[in-house]
């Protein structure tokens, strides 16, 4: 049975999704990368393989997310795409009448405005951490609440407090002050959801024409408090959280792989699930191409460099692994 694999790997989580040749969702895996992207890719592949029947074969692979080039080098990919493209492709299939996509991930967020199924406008968040999943994670940990409980606890709020959401530093000190004033944790949690929704709309959503139905996806859409906060802020009930919302980027990458392989006459680049058993070596090197002086990881397998990762511009990630890193270092 032909199946298509999509991998969406970001700085906080990895999502793997498998679809069949009709483009139907089959299964997905959602894991935290824990700062170890190669380990996360291997773990994800192992978990997926263990859940699938033996007769399933992968006929195409697509990768997306900030570490998409790394994932492609490790797994062997047929198509590598930006997250916006992957998210749009998945939504076009799952929620065809969607007009706006709100996507909030671990360390970034995006808005995509659709018109007749095509992208009319898009925007991305700034470098500011306020308005991302990591910010919620951090605040949940500080309040001693498991992130899985965050949304349900927030929904129990009766009198949400106003938390400043413009900046993580101010938000945290504001929350501490609200705790000291004796506000209920539930009210602070929902106040934080409201602050995050406000911050998103006044940052990523600034100047964008948000129309309904709105699709809310990404890991943060697990948080039911955030869903309610967006409904309130947008003054609409038409905020849809699709099934497998956390893996929509991966689903889109799988759909793009399916499309790619349907027109290609060559076999997939997929190296097989056995890459989860391989032992990779990592060595650091510094890029001196610009003033950022990024320290990258050079990943080798059996003494051969197969990928480079960790730069801010993807220059090394896109280059064939055989490209001599040492020469660039001297430039």
């Amino acid at each position: 049975m032909n199946h298509y694999l999509g991998i969406d790997i970001g700085s906080v989580t990895i999502k793997l999704a498998l679809i069949d040749r009709g483009g139907q969702f089959v299964d997905s895996v959602y894991l935290r990368t824990q700062g170890k992207p190669i380990w996360a890719i291997q773990q994800g592949l192992t978990q997926l393989r263990d859940r699938l029947p033996r007769k399933v074969s992968v006929s195409g692979v697509g990768t997306t997310g900030s570490a998409r080039y790394l994932a492609a080098a490790i797994v062997g990919a047929d198509v590598i795409k930006n997250e916006i493209t992957s998210q749009v492709v998945a939504v076009a299939r799952c929620v065809p009448d969607a007009q706006t996509i709100i996507e909030i991930g671990g360390q970034d967020s995006k808005i995509i405005i659709l018109s007749h199924g095509l992208v009319a406008d898009f925007g991305m968040n700034t470098v500011c951490a306020a308005g991302t999943g990591s910010f919620l994670d951090h605040q949940a940990a500080r309040l001693g609440i498991a992130i899985d409980e965050f949304g349900d606890r927030a929904l129990r709020s009766r009198n949400p407090v106003r938390v400043t959401g413009k900046c993580t530093v101010f938000a945290e000190s504001d929350m501490i002050q609200k705790q000291q004033m004796g506000h209920r944790t539930e009210d602070i949690l929902y106040g934080l959801c409201q602050a995050l929704a406000r911050n998103y709309l006044s940052n990523v959503g600034l100047g964008k024409e948000i129309r309904t139905p709105v699709v809310f996806q990404g890991g943060v859409a697990f948080n039911r408090g955030m869903v309610r906060a967006f409904k309130e802020a947008l003054e609409t009930e038409e905020v849809i959280v699709p099934p497998h919302h956390e893996a929509m980027g991966a689903v889109g990458a799988a759909l793009l792989a399916l499309e790619e392989m349907s027109t290609r006459r060559t076999r997939t680049e997929f190296k097989g699930f056995q890459v989860s058993e391989a032992e990779y070596a990592t060595t650091p090197f510094e890029c001196r191409a610009c003033s950022s002086l990024c320290e990258l990881a050079q990943i080798s397998l059996d003494g051969q460099v197969i990928a480079r990762s960790g730069g801010r511009c993807d220059m090394w990630e896109r280059k064939p692994a055989a490209h001599p890193a040492g020469r660039e270092r001297q430039e």
Binding site: N82, T85, V119, N203, G207
Partner: peptide
């Protein structure tokens, strides 16, 4: 308008890449 507020090289590159793919 693609990013309203501070951005880094990563975000600049991702925005351009998205535009090319779109």
């Amino acid at each position: 308008p693609r990013v309203s507020g501070y951005f880094d090289l990563h975000l600049l590159r991702e925005s351009i890449q998205a535009e090319i793919e779109m």
